[in-house]
Write a protein that binds this DNA or RNA. Structure first.
Lengths: 217, 217
DNA sequence: ACCTGAACACCGTTCAAGT
DNA sequence: ACCTGAACACCGTTCAAGT
């Protein structure tokens, strides 16, 4: 009831800090994420963050696990192939929605609880579908590669969008035109190609391939 | 013949700077690569580098293209599948040999002449093998995803090596044991698994899959 | 043409001091 | 228990000054 309440700040916590970091990185890019700016966004001095978080790496790891939490669990679809397909598509959507995903994962690695939870549920599903353990690992790694590799390309592609092609890059591509005839012949198609369709094309090849491997051993 | 000659320095150049940067990043890690340390390694002040290089990003882009130059061209093997398989394996070997590959590519993108040259030769080969253009792009993206995704996992895996598992991570994994039963049941196999074998398992599934797609359309 | 020293505007992090 | 100000050891980059 007092006026004070309006200005009372939420207490800081690791979760609140990680969320603020995600917002800041989404809005201004990962290279703009500094302890000082993050503190400012939370209405606090940078040094206060160290009361709730080990160091900056700890925040970045928290952001990586936040991504995996966004993907959500495997759904209960009866067919393992359909369920795995769904979760792969969702993972790719989350990863490509945040441009800082790949730089961060490649710097921090993946070792948080949400990531392990997702992995655990997929492994369980494959085991239940009759895969021998060595094939479970093969399948997991091949699927994860596809998801991360594709997100990677979609995020870093030179062809990604007309918008992102600044003059410098455009000049570069024009200069390359006669040196790399096949690339430039396909350049228009490269810019127009649907990453969604391509991702699912590859995913289906992989899912059918590992299923065939299961059924022939 | 004079004593002076022994102390004459090679003139600086973009190539020499990029090579020195590669050496420094290999030896001390990418986060240790600063303009000041790089200058020191070349026997020069940091500010001199700016006479031969636009800025630090320019050096990092040069390092990315250096990687693609290491992979070398598509060989002339008659069978396109064999030739593409070879180059994919070589690419993965180069990428995983330098821990800074993925962080750098994910931050810088891929837009150098060596990278375009490799892409051009693969596209040419697939066109010659009778792929329609839309399938060429699908094939390229799926193969590139597999190479980068796998290099990515091999580089960032928590399971990568006993050596790399510091006490902190080990404690984390032990704490997760009962929460993630399938992961921990497979942990030993995960640590022992051969990334080479798995990479080629997936690669063969993909190559056969795109070939089948070509032959049914 | 190339190199340098000093300076600027930033970093992450520590620590003693405050409440 | 939590927050802060000052400080330390770094960054990338600019620019006037030297040769």
């Amino acid at each position: 009831m007092t006026v004070d309440q309006a200005t009372v700040r939420l207490p800081l916590s690791r979760d609140r800090i990680v969320s603020a970091a995600v917002e800041l990185a989404d809005a201004q890019g990962i290279e703009a994420l500094s302890m000082r700016k993050l503190g400012q966004a939370l209405g606090v001095e940078a040094m206060s963050l160290y009361n709730h978080v080990e160091d900056k790496d700890d925040i970045l790891s928290g952001m990586v696990d936040w991504l995996f939490a966004q993907i959500g669990p495997l759904d209960g679809t009866a067919d393992w192939k359909v369920a795995v397909r769904h979760v792969a598509v969702r993972a790719k959507d989350v990863f490509t929605a945040h441009a800082w995903t790949l730089p961060l994962i490649s710097a921090q690695g993946i070792a948080g609880p949400a990531a392990f939870g997702l992995m655990d549920s997929v492994l369980a599903r494959l085991l239940a579908a009759g895969y021998p353990t060595h094939l479970v690992l093969h399948a997991w790694h091949v699927i994860a590669s596809h998801v991360m590799g594709y997100s990677f390309q979609e995020t870093t592609s030179v062809w990604a969008s007309d918008e992102a092609l600044d003059r410098k890059k455009r000049a570069l591509l024009e200069g390359y035109a006669e040196r790399f005839p096949h690339v430039s012949a396909l350049a228009e198609e490269l810019m127009a190609c649907s990453f969604v369709e391509e991702f699912e094309f590859g995913l289906d090849i992989i899912l059918s391939g590992i299923e065939a491997a299961r059924d022939t051993t």
